[in-house]
Computed example of a mutant assay.
Amino acid sequence: MLKTRLDLDRIRTARGVIDPVFLNTPLFRCEALGRALGCAVDIKLETANPVRSFKARGTELVASRLADQGRAAVVCASAGNLGSALAWSGRRRGLDVTVVASRRAPAAKLDRIRALGATLELVDGDFEAARKRAAGIAQQRGIRLVEDSLDIETCEGAATIGVELARRASSFDVVLIALGGGAMATGVGHVLKALAPGVEVICVQPQGAPAMTRSWHQRRVVTTDSTDTIADGVAGRFPIPAVLDDLLLVADDAVLVQEASIVAGMRMLLEHAGLVVEPSAALGVAAVLEDPARFAGRRVVTIVCGSNVNLDDYHRWVGP
């Protein structure tokens, strides 16, 4: 077993804690998309749930444990999807949830956080500014700070996707995973390396937000001064050392893709699969578009990880 921070027994147990509405998400062969890309493509759909992303698999674990401990409040920084997920999981368990986000975050994601009953605080700057403010609130109020990818619950919750994929591992040979902070990549990667080691795990990140990918290739933390990508959900600048250590053990490759390929991927998911997705969810398709020879004739799973997107932005990128 790989010596990451994750534990397969805990991941299996987590499935009994997470609300079933987030589990056993669809995995289906999209023949039209496969024909367009030149390979067999299966979509793992993580958007058909109340928060329209995979993040609640992790926040369900966080909120359950806090409720069991008698804790009343929790705070996180979020680019949008984690905040919505924590708001949903926390409301269900009577927790007071505060979410700190950048004013630049997509309005659709901020509206979802408010609608789910969380207190939303907006800050100037990017996600890193929000993370600093959330840490300050946690210290001032003496409440739990949830840090995506660093907190093991977020990784092991996401890892339950890997458990579901491993059951069907004979039907594919490569999985494409959006890479931001690393919770989904390390979680799914850990399970697949344990249960389906023949499956290649490839992480995908935008060229405009390359910190974790650069860190993976250089085997040390590499930070960036800024990000420039429409894929806001993966636009971090400061990789977490412990998460990078886990990623180095479970990822077979990490690649960067251009913005035009992300947009083309979003358009293809709409045209061929009928899916409206946020940019981060199209990273896997973008990777195939940029290196078709690598995937030609292969059996590929791409995890469609979120669909919280401003419609005006979506139409501007993808077209009417």
Score class of each variant (00 low, 15 high):
41 V>D: 02
43 I>G: 03
43 I>R: 00
44 K>H: 04
47 T>A: 03
48 A>N: 02
48 A>Y: 04
49 N>S: 09
51 V>S: 02
52 R>W: 11
56 A>R: 01
57 R>S: 11
57 R>T: 14
58 G>E: 05
58 G>Y: 02
58 G>R: 00
60 E>V: 07
61 L>K: 02
61 L>F: 00
63 A>D: 08
64 S>I: 00
64 S>M: 01
64 S>G: 03
65 R>C: 05
66 L>W: 06
66 L>H: 04
69 Q>V: 00
70 G>W: 03
70 G>I: 01
70 G>E: 05
71 R>W: 00
72 A>M: 05
72 A>V: 14
73 A>W: 04
73 A>H: 06
74 V>H: 10
74 V>N: 05
76 C>S: 14
78 S>A: 12
79 A>K: 01
81 N>A: 09
82 L>C: 11
83 G>C: 13
85 A>G: 13
85 A>K: 08
86 L>V: 04
91 R>L: 13
92 R>M: 08
93 R>G: 08
93 R>S: 05
95 L>Q: 04
99 V>I: 14
99 V>P: 06
99 V>C: 09
99 V>F: 01
101 A>D: 05
101 A>M: 15
102 S>V: 05
103 R>E: 15
104 R>A: 15
104 R>M: 10
108 A>D: 05
109 K>W: 04
109 K>H: 01
110 L>V: 04
110 L>P: 01
110 L>Q: 12
113 I>Y: 00
114 R>D: 03
114 R>T: 07
114 R>F: 02
117 G>Q: 13
118 A>N: 04
119 T>M: 01
121 E>V: 13
124 D>C: 13
125 G>V: 06
126 D>V: 06
126 D>C: 04
127 F>P: 04
128 E>Q: 13
130 A>R: 06
131 R>D: 13
132 K>T: 14
133 R>T: 12
136 G>M: 10
138 A>D: 02
138 A>Y: 03
142 G>R: 08
143 I>E: 06
143 I>V: 15
143 I>Y: 03
148 D>V: 11
149 S>E: 10
149 S>F: 07
150 L>D: 04
